[in-house]
């Protein structure tokens, strides 16, 4: 079982990964000083999941803030998803951004330009 559930904190996001229904959620803030350590468990869970993935994998990314230290790790997560997508599972990535948050929309576009999976950009109202 490659399931993962991490509670969010002021510096780290909520992460939920359910291998049984092929769903990954990353929500909140990702500004830890050491992001490699934080993302390690998710990267490993995705690697394990790729051995026997569901036919469809849905990913929701709802980040409010992320630092550049996290941005590389998030790219690594997307690269794992790319591998899953070119394997036996069809991956859909939903990238959420708050209206007027051009920086977060652009960040999603930056990833989309690098990663070979279609991103769905979803605008949400400010909280």
């Amino acid at each position: 079982m490659a399931d993962l559930k991490l509670e969010g904190s002021p510096k780290t996001p909520t992460i939920e990964f359910n291998s049984g229904n092929g769903y990954l959620l990353i929500r909140g803030r990702s500004i830890p000083e050491n992001s490699i350590e934080f993302y390690k468990s998710l990267i490993e869970a995705l690697e394990e999941y790729n051995n026997s993935p569901q036919a469809n994998t849905k990913v929701d990314i709802q980040l409010e803030y992320f630092n550049t230290s996290s941005s590389k790790c998030i790219l690594d997560v997307f690269k794992k998803l790319e591998a899953i997508n070119s394997g036996n599972s069809e991956v859909v990535i939903n990238w959420y951004y708050e209206e007027d948050d051009e920086d977060m929309l652009e960040a999603g576009e930056d990833y989309q330009a690098i990663i070979n999976i279609p991103f769905k950009m979803i605008e949400v109202e400010e909280e």
């Binding site: 941005s71 790790c73 690098i114």
Partner: peptide, 30 residues
């Protein structure tokens, strides 16, 4: 800056601390 950021993000070596030279580019962009 956007191009440069993507280039460093995708190709740059990740330092042990995770930064990998993106910080200043990101600051300039924002």
């Amino acid at each position: 800056l956007k191009m440069y950021y993507k280039e460093v993000l995708n190709n740059g070596e990740m330092s042990a601390k995770g930064g990998g030279g993106l910080g200043m580019i990101d600051i300039a962009r924002k």
